[in-house]
Amino acid sequence: MKLPASMPRLKGFRHPREIIAYAVWTYHRFALSTADVEDLLAERGVIVSRETIRLWVNRFGAHFADFIRRDRPSAADKWHLDEVVIPINGIKYWLWRAVDADGDVLDILIQPRRNAKAAKRFLKRLIAQFGAPRVVVTDKLRSYFKPIRDLAPNADHRAHKGLNNRIEGSHRPTRKREKIMGRFKSPRQGQRFLATHDQINTIFRPRRYRISTISYRHSRSDAFQLWADYALEMTA
């Protein structure tokens, strides 16, 4: 990925912001470890430790995710909600995820429970960001029923296992990264990583089977330009 060489240097950092942005991009765009990114940079003549890359990812990943959220088009008013278990340090946690009708991830939240209170907390968070939905599709978990009825009384709630297939695919990248990372070390780490990872994949992983080759290439070029613009807005 080529970023403009004329970008001003980031104050307090030895490496140019182009290199930092590239490291964050490769880590989240592909199923790579920090050691893999270290080797990619070394092949290009940039010597940096994997610990430094980890610090870049943690510090600047949220920056890119926030700007992607800021500039994304309005979310569709049909939401798919689902929850999947993720073990952290031998304790069972639940990853709550919502995607819209286009398959774009709206938000995620890691919680220790899979009950009505947890569902209400997640739904309130979504409505605060995107407004009330027109349709909410979930599985048959009873915990969804009362929160949706209370917080989105005008929404059409469709509870059916087969209708929620759209969101099932969004869990696969999480499982893949979870394996590479040797599982998440804490709920905070998992929340920070997935909240960033899902947003970056929103612009760099369009549903290619639904668009032509030309449209896909235009989409990819637009994503690269956005990434370059966001790199220019990085602050120390």
Rank of each mutant, 00 (worst) to 15 (best):
P133K: 03
H63Y: 10
P4T: 08
A223S: 00
H218C: 08
L109F: 13
R114C: 12
R72L: 12
L95C: 07
H15S: 07
L41S: 13
V46Q: 14
A75G: 03
D150P: 10
L81A: 05
A128K: 15
R29W: 06
P133T: 07
V57Q: 06
K140E: 13
A35R: 14
P206M: 05
R50D: 08
E38Q: 11
S215A: 14
Y216I: 02
A228W: 00
T26M: 09
V24P: 07
F224C: 14
A159R: 13
A101N: 06
E83D: 15
L95K: 04
A155R: 09
R14G: 05
M7S: 08
H218R: 09
I88Q: 04
A128P: 08
S6P: 00
V99H: 03
I214D: 04
R17L: 05
I203N: 11
A155T: 10
A228N: 04
R220Y: 10
H15F: 12
D82E: 15
F30C: 13
H63T: 09
H160W: 15
G12T: 09
D156H: 14
L141Q: 08
I88P: 05
A228G: 05
E168I: 03
F67I: 04
S33D: 06
Q129V: 07
K185I: 13
A62S: 13
R142E: 10
G169H: 09
K176W: 15
D39H: 03
N165K: 14
F193A: 05
A223Q: 00
E168A: 00
G45Q: 14
Q189D: 12
T26Y: 02
L226K: 15
R125P: 09
S221K: 13
R175D: 09
A128L: 12
W56S: 02
S74M: 06
A5P: 06
V99F: 03
R166K: 13
Y144T: 04
E233K: 15
